Simulated assay, not measured.
Amino acid sequence: MSNTQLLIIDAQNDFCDHSTEAYIPALPVPGAYQDCLRLAKLINRAGSAIGGVIATLDTHHMIDLAHNTSWLTENGIAPPPFSLVTAADFIAGRYRLAATQVSQEKNGYVLNYLQQLERMQRPFILWPPHCLIGTPGHNLNSELAQALSEWEMRTLKVVTFMQKGENIWTESFSALKAVIPDPADQATQLNLAVLEMLAQSDRLLIAGQASSHCVKETISDILQFGAAELKHKLVILTDCMSPVSGFEAAVEQFFTELRAQGIRLATSAEIAIELVSVNTQY
């Protein structure tokens, strides 16, 4: 029987565009809630043919280099979410760290960080605080969490949960490594153990949020650092992921590039039919 694995990236409440009286998501991605429902439906319908599940959890402290509340403008107020900060901004004092006590060494670190990002041609975006440890926003979407619990009961296997992003001085979009790894923090380095787990699959389904950021960067790292044959095992569940607003065109371009590399893009309904068919053969 083939070994189909499922990698779920950051399918958490804070990214779901679904507010309730009890909770308002911090960083809702349009379409993310329905994505989670479709993924839950796939797991409920065809989960018996899924041999393993890895679910990543974006995990932050309130203090975080990439949170807008950790910064002040030259007017002494927090910049709005989605502000862009450049090295020149930092040098000129247009943006500074909000902490009352910031050492010269730490300011030097931040400047170097911004300069490294610019050499990588990456923007530095300030996000609203999200997926904070111990808050409802950090939890998986509840319908998806229920589907995974039932999958565990049916298969007698456990979901492998993996937290990323706890280091407050670097960004961690990818499930495999930080944007700029911290030499003193092993958790920010390339996660070879997870790469090895993914390599054991015959087919690797990928879903989660957001397609423009954490999903995109995870896929890119898999292609860059994973075994060559892993590329041919990937299946991108296009209806189980959505982009951050404003990044739709970038995602379409990314999907076009993936297709050109021979990577399969499919819907959850298509894959469910295939998994059910395979499962009935055994």
Rank of each mutant, 00 (worst) to 15 (best):
250 A>M: 10
274 E>N: 11
245 S>F: 06
268 S>K: 03
238 T>A: 08
238 T>P: 00
209 Q>E: 15
233 K>S: 06
244 V>D: 07
215 V>R: 03
274 E>T: 13
254 F>G: 00
236 I>N: 04
253 Q>G: 06
223 L>M: 08
236 I>L: 13
259 R>Q: 15
270 E>Q: 14
200 Q>A: 12
264 R>A: 13
213 H>P: 00
264 R>N: 11
223 L>T: 02
242 S>W: 00
260 A>V: 01
273 I>D: 15
259 R>G: 01
204 L>R: 05
247 F>T: 09
267 T>G: 13
248 E>P: 03
247 F>Y: 15
273 I>N: 15
210 A>P: 09
225 F>I: 02
221 D>A: 01
238 T>F: 01
218 T>I: 04
221 D>K: 02
207 A>G: 04
256 T>M: 12
269 A>R: 11
243 P>F: 03
242 S>I: 00
270 E>M: 09
225 F>V: 02
265 L>A: 07
207 A>L: 07
239 D>K: 03
238 T>W: 00
271 I>L: 09
256 T>E: 13
209 Q>D: 12
272 A>H: 06
250 A>R: 08
243 P>S: 04
225 F>L: 07
243 P>G: 04
213 H>D: 05
248 E>C: 07
265 L>V: 06
268 S>Q: 06
240 C>M: 05
219 I>R: 04
230 L>A: 12
226 G>D: 04
